[in-house]
């Protein structure tokens, strides 16, 4: 894995940006603003705007939007199971998939107009078909310190694992709710900070913290904002760890 500078940030119109095999073009023509996303030379998406946006923003967003908004949960499978001793608290680092959001600035603020991902998209079932939930799936190694990753594809998730119950707990999967995700970025890293509290050998609670993993990072706009129904940012993993 290599750490490289990303292109998150604000850009003026017109701009053409290349992100691996994806080309983003925003230009003005005949008093309209055009947004175009090409993948390997083929146009994937094209929008025409009637508003006079002078700039747009590229930010990392919650990895729940492509290929389709099927779920608001993300399951990260650990390549090697994590054994958490009784009464211990340990900080680990894992990776999560990043989706790239394009925002236009309007009078109502930043508005998301497109999301794409350079990563593999995969889903999984957490629990049983009758009472489980579909989750976005990702597999990660466990690192003792923040790994170096391509921040256009992956982010670093700092997880504080707290085991206050009397048994050693084996953690193979961690499930998060997108409604709690707080994504921060700088020119090299995309990050989130979360906590995993074990309740028993089979049950745990996950939540996100509104902090970056290091100072100076900028917060990304949240697409999944807790609302009337999705009021909690926590997720109770009651179908096994």
């Amino acid at each position: 894995m290599t750490e490289s500078k990303n292109i998150y940030g604000s850009f003026s119109v017109p701009s053409t940006l290349n992100i691996e095999n994806v080309t983003i073009s925003v230009y003005r023509e005949n008093e309209f603003t055009y947004y175009q996303r090409d993948l390997s030379g083929t146009t994937n998406k094209k929008y025409v705007f009637t508003c006079d946006d002078s700039h747009f923003t590229i930010n990392p967003v919650e990895p729940q939007n492509v290929p389709k908004k099927l779920t608001s949960h993300m399951l990260i499978e650990l390549e090697n199971p994590l054994l958490v001793g009784s009464g211990t608290k340990k900080t680990i680092y894992i990776t999560f998939p990043v989706e790239i959001g394009i925002f236009f600035h309007t009078t109502r603020g930043k508005e998301l107009i497109d999301v794409f991902s350079l990563n593999i998209k995969k889903f999984t079932l957490y629990g049983n078909p009758n009472d489980g939930i579909i989750c976005k799936y990702y597999k990660s190694s466990v690192y003792p310190k923040p790994p170096e990753v391509n921040s256009m594809k992956e982010g670093v998730l700092e997880v504080e694992v707290v085991n206050n119950n009397g048994n050693t707990v084996e953690v193979r999967n961690i499930v998060f709710s997108a409604y709690g995700m707080k994504i921060f970025y700088d020119d090299k890293t995309v990050s989130m900070k979360a906590i995993l509290r074990t309740v028993s050998r089979k049950v745990a609670e996950t939540d996100f913290l509104n902090d970056p993993i290091h100072h100076g990072m900028v917060k990304s706009p949240e697409i999944y904002v807790p609302g009337k129904m999705h009021y909690t940012t926590k997720y109770i993993m009651d179908k096994g760890l």
Binding site: P67, E77, I120, K121, F123, T124, L125, Y126
Partner: peptide, 8 residues
């Protein structure tokens, strides 16, 4: 395929 599940 993105929609085929990892588990089951």
């Amino acid at each position: 395929h993105p929609y085929t599940l990892k588990q089951p």
